[in-house]
Design a protein around this nucleic acid. Structure first.
Length: 809
RNA sequence: GCGAGAGUGGCGGAACUGGUAGACGCGCUAGAUUUAGGAUCUAGUGGGCAGCGCUCAUGGGGGUUCAAUUCCCCCCUCUCGCACCA
């Protein structure tokens, strides 16, 4: 064909043209109520930073958009919305640093994100349904969620030891503390006792845990959630306390080891510490507890393994054998898990073993792998045969777990219990830039939720919104805001001044998209059931235990409260990977951040999108190398030139070799799209183009197939080429190419001839070759003969369509 | 420490239920075309023995098999998540 053409693929002109046309025609505006085959394609909405769109955002959005376009071409009414998650400490801290008010900065950032960047990445957003979490019309409903949860007993306030970030001057949820550091600013988090609002996410622990078995999510994400929720089955057991009429309740997953308990341990914060401690030990215990409570999370982590503790002077009584055992205080027992106290079984628990060795406490073996006694040099945590366990001796330890639990239940000394690590979600933030918690504190009526008709509780404009170190929100300084009247009794009352965690804003935004214009409700019930649960959700796995856990909780709560009929928000979730550059993480400090604008300008959004997807498997991320994009650009240049040169014969494809290539390509490319294996999908499309270019004459039909296959990756270019080929409608309405297995005709194949498993020759043979035929042509091959010479054939293996392996001695 | 994932050319990465390792692309080499070219096209491109061919090669070491990147065991390295969760 004619390859000397002056025509150039002018990506700027093409992309401007199609961006404008899509918007003008409203190609991606969805008729939300009348769509016939709804498909909700969701991507995690961005935080609109002042720095602009990050390449990580583009990567995430592109992978999601490609999937959406792929579904659209298959005839679905794909709803693909986008919004802005603009409340929160990130915005606020940045605003403080720059000395600009967030209310001023955020709209600018959003405008920049949307108009200068998001509109240029080639995604098919429905711009008629945006969400901005800082918009009053939106956060009114964020507050409504709070009041609903409050009215249903799922929101409560309490004094609790909470995570405090001294730098952000606010509390954090457990999920926001990463290895003892603040998720936002990496400062060391300390513990503080404060009155805070919580959401009772633990009411759904079991459901959150169990549903993981049935939802179609990335396994990596589900594993992270399982670890976070950490369900464990066991029993709670009451130990007596010597000389006190009280019980010391412990949780254990190993009731079979009760006879091996040689001491007890209380967490330093345990309420019984004072009561149990003897006069003699009082001073030592107080000193230990003081020191332990002062320790930061980080110090505890650093010292993990090293065991410290102090004897209280008190004793507990084992409910099974009546033995008196000493009670200790040690910080390896955490107040926040189980009952904050344990029975220590050094023989069968590594931590207890280390502690017992440190303080020379007795170690009694009660489970023996073989039924005989052993000298233990380390804890034996496996199953075995019960020994030293009274009436349970000789029993299998697995059975003993049941038997002992039943025994305890019968005697009223304990019960079966499932424990979770998951804690309630602390949603109070002592900051400014968020939706105020819609509560009014009345001295006579107690805390009252703000009635729906009075929502939103508007965030007041405040010149000075800095946290002031008092541990209270800046809103507390605003008397006009604080002083109000009680909605119940009408008397003077004070508003709650904390604002809500940013993660609540994003915990329900996907409910809003289909109902953005609803003014009197957060979402329309009918629409919600038409579009939700979300069909496909794509985002980063860094939100595995934050956002993705909270959205599930909110959905379950909505169902419980009767607002919806489903209890999981996302049918499918896929975590995308991370982009690195030249083998290293991108970071501002290293100065190796890819600026998407630069690449989009130079190569075009289509190229940039395609290259990002070509780097590696989408779910695993990839390594961005600046030069690599030229390969994709060449691919599009060639494609453009072929169409532009007009040298396409209008005939149908007759060449069986070509037909085979085309139908195989459709089949394989489609399969790779479905699995989000975009890198290999692109490779197969490149192979198809390479194959087409080897032909003297390029057929219009085959080029049209290729254009449709690449359309989700390079939507502007595909539209342009489609139009150049004489189509007036969008390529995205042209349907996805279908493959016909019967067109994939393979009449010959490369038969591999091996001798002792080593390839000695390959030969082209007809597919319908018989076993005998294959073996004989293999063994007659010159090079094969050389290796058979003087040997005896032991065995011949024939794999139809693949190979012949002759085994000789 | 526990859990998950990964280690393949100079580089990014392919390889279906075990069946020609290195698809596709970058880079590189040579040639063609061009006034020239960061343009385009053609050919080549894992290492070694200097071209056929042989041989070694998928983190290391064992094993199963006619045949192993793929399955099994041991070890090493890296990334991510959790971090004394009883």
């Amino acid at each position: 064909m004619n390859r000397d053409s002056n025509a150039k693929y002018d990506h700027r002109a093409i992309e401007d043209k199609w961006r404008y046309r899509w918007e003008e025609r409203g190609d991606y505006r969805i008729d939300i109520d009348n769509a016939k085959r709804p498909f909700y394609n969701l991507m995690m909405f961005p935080y609109p930073s002042a720095e602009g769109l990050h390449v990580g955002n583009v990567y995430a959005f592109t992978g999601s958009d490609i999937y959406g376009r792929f579904m659209k071409m298959q005839g679905y009414d794909v709803f693909e919305p986008i919004g802005f998650d603009a409340f929160g400490m990130h915005s606020e801290n940045f605003a403080l640093k720059k000395g600009i008010h967030p209310a001023e900065l955020v709209p600018k950032n959003i405008a920049n994100f949307r108009d200068n960047q998001l509109k240029k990445i080639g995604a098919m957003y429905d711009w008629s349904r945006q969400v901005d979490t800082t918009d009053k019309k939106y956060y009114k409903w964020t507050q409504w969620f709070f009041t609903q949860l409050f009215n249903h007993g799922l929101a409560y306030e309490t004094d609790a030891s909470v995570n405090w970030c001294p730098s952000c001057q606010t509390v954090l949820a457990n999920e926001q503390v990463i290895s003892g550091e603040c998720e936002r600013c990496s400062s060391e988090v300390i513990q503080k006792t404060m009155n805070q609002w919580f959401f009772r996410i633990t009411a759904f622990s079991e459901q959150l845990y169990n549903n993981l078995d049935v939802i179609d999510w990335s396994e990596i994400t589900k594993t992270a959630q399982r670890n976070w929720i950490n369900r464990s089955e066991g029993a709670e057991i009451d130990f007596g306390i010597d000389r006190l009429d009280e019980a010391l309740r412990v949780f254990t997953t190993r009731p079979d080891t009760v006879f091996g308990a040689t001491y007890m341990v209380l967490a330093p914060e345990h309420p019984l510490v004072g009561k149990i401690t003897s006069a003699v030990q009082k001073k030592a215990v107080e000193e230990y507890v003081d020191a332990a409570v002062r320790k930061t999370e980080q110090e505890r982590i650093d010292e993990a393994g090293k065991k410290t503790g102090v004897f209280t002077g008190g004793y507990a009584v084992n409910p099974l054998n009546g033995k008196k055992i000493p009670v200790w205080v040690a910080d390896y027992v955490l107040i926040g898990y189980g009952t904050g106290a344990i029975m220590a079984v050094p023989a069968h628990d590594e931590r207890d073993f280390a502690f017992a060795r440190t303080f020379d406490l007795p170690i009694i073996e009660v489970i023996s792998p073989d039924g005989t006694a052993h000298e233990l040099n380390e804890a034996y945590i496996g199953e075995g045969i019960m020994v030293n366990s009274g009436e349970f001796n000789g029993m299998n330890s697995r059975d003993a777990i049941q038997k002992i639990t039943v025994w305890l239940e019968e005697k009223g000394k304990g019960e079966k219990k499932v424990n979770f690590r998951l804690h309630d979600w602390c949603i109070s933030r002592q900051r400014y830039w968020g939706p105020p918690i819609p509560v009014i504190h009345c001295d006579s009526c107690g805390p009252q939720a703000v009635p729906e008709k009075n929502l939103p509780v508007e965030l007041p404009e405040m010149e000075d919104f800095r946290p002031d170190g008092t541990g209270r929100s800046p809103l507390a300084r605003n008397e006009k805001f604080v002083n109000t009247t009680c909605p119940k009794c009408g008397g003077p009352a004070k508003r709650e001044t904390d604002v809500m965690d940013n993660f609540l804003d994003s915990a329900w935004y996907f409910f809003r998209y289909p109902s953005t214009e609803c003014e009197n409700k957060p979402f329309d019930r009918e629409r919600t059931h038409k579009w939700l649960p979300v069909d496909m959700y794509i985002g980063g796995n860094e939100h595995a235990v934050l956002h993705l856990l909270y959205t599930r909780f909110i959905t379950m709560a909505l169902k419980d409260m009767g607002y919806i009929d489903f209890d999981e928000p996302f049918k499918r979730f896929r975590a995308h990977g991370l982009i690195i550059r030249d083998g290293a993480k991108m970071s501002k400090s290293k100065g190796n951040v890819v600026n998407p604008d630069v690449f989009i300008d130079k190569y075009g959004a289509d190229c940039f999108r395609t290259y990002l997807m070509f780097l590696g498997p989408y779910t695993q991320g990839g390594d961005f190398q600046d030069k690599g994009i030229t390969g994709v650009r060449r691919f599009y240049d060639r494609l453009y030139r072929i169409v532009q040169s007009g040298d396409l014969r209008k005939t149908q494809i007759e060449d069986t070799e070509l037909l085979t290539l085309i139908h195989k390509s459709i089949r394989d490319v489609t399969a790779h799209y479905e699995n989000l294996e975009y890198n290999t999908a692109i490779a197969f499309m490149m192979e198809l183009l390479n194959g087409l270019m080897k032909k003297e004459v390029i057929n219009k039909e085959s080029i049209e197939i290729l254009i449709r296959l690449v359309a989700p990756f390079g939507p502007h270019l595909a539209e342009e080429l489609w139009e150049m080929l004489g189509h007036s409608d969008s390529v995205f309405n042209a349907g996805w190419p279908e493959f016909d297995e019967s067109k994939i005709v393979i009449d010959t194949f490369e038969l591999v001839a091996q001798v002792n498993g080593k390839v000695r020759a390959t030969m082209k043979v007809p597919v319908n070759i018989t076993k005998e035929g294959a073996i004989s042509s293999a063994s007659e091959n010159q090079n094969v003969v050389r290796f058979l010479d003087g040997k005896t054939v032991v065995k011949t293996i024939y794999v139809p369509g693949k190979l012949v392996n002759i085994v000789v001695k």
